[in-house]
Amino acid sequence: MKRNVMDRIIDTIEAIAAVFVGLVAADIFLSVLLRRFFSVQIPDSYDFGRMLLGILIFWGIAATSYRGGHITVDLVWASASKRWKRVIDIFATLILLFVVTVQTYTLFDKVRATYNDNVLTYDLGLPTWPFFAIAWAGDVSAVVLIAIRTYRLIFHPEDLHEESHVESAADR
């Protein structure tokens, strides 16, 4: 299968999301291990864990936005013909693109406010705005992936990597 620029962007964003899953798991494991067996707490572990979880959520949104692998229940879509399924998918993806774009805009305001207010972590006094900026970058990635999905739904539906849709009796 030919790998084009869009496929490499998709794979890169999904790999970054996977790295953040690993970081959150490592943070939790290390924090629990040190606290339980050595009675030591990592400075700012609560702040880091909270902010890493926020980053993970936004990069997770990006990772699931393109594939359509999230949980859906849609009786209308399931009973529609192949043509109408595509129309519904395009409409739903355009709505999702609008909503996530607005979310990305408002999250940027949060990054800016955190930077301007000089919000710091409790123990080490580290600035928190870089964590918010990384989460915002995940949201920007979601917009990019949803835009790619919209483009492919409209112009090249054969290039989509559909994993969540099960063929209905109407399609056979």
Score class of each variant (00 low, 15 high):
residue 151 Y to L: 09
residue 144 V to H: 00
residue 133 A to Y: 01
residue 107 L to Y: 15
residue 88 I to S: 06
residue 145 L to Y: 00
residue 55 I to M: 07
residue 97 L to A: 12
residue 117 D to N: 15
residue 45 S to R: 04
residue 115 Y to K: 14
residue 107 L to D: 08
residue 81 S to T: 13
residue 92 A to G: 15
residue 42 I to W: 04
residue 68 G to F: 05
residue 72 T to V: 15
residue 92 A to I: 14
residue 55 I to S: 04
residue 127 P to C: 02
residue 146 I to V: 10
residue 54 G to H: 05
residue 143 V to C: 08
residue 62 A to W: 04
residue 154 I to A: 08
residue 145 L to T: 02
residue 82 K to A: 14
residue 159 D to M: 14
residue 141 S to W: 00
residue 139 D to H: 06
residue 68 G to V: 03
residue 145 L to K: 02
residue 43 P to V: 05
residue 73 V to R: 13
residue 124 L to N: 10
residue 45 S to L: 02
residue 146 I to A: 06
residue 158 E to R: 10
residue 54 G to M: 12
residue 146 I to Y: 00
residue 42 I to H: 03
residue 145 L to N: 02
residue 135 A to R: 01
residue 51 M to F: 12
residue 141 S to C: 05
residue 110 K to S: 15
residue 92 A to T: 14
residue 144 V to T: 06
residue 151 Y to A: 08
residue 53 L to E: 05
residue 83 R to V: 14
residue 124 L to S: 11
residue 144 V to Y: 00
residue 143 V to W: 01
residue 122 Y to W: 11
residue 153 L to W: 01
residue 98 F to C: 09
residue 43 P to F: 06
residue 136 W to A: 02
residue 160 L to G: 10
residue 152 R to N: 08
residue 92 A to S: 15
residue 53 L to D: 01
residue 47 D to L: 04
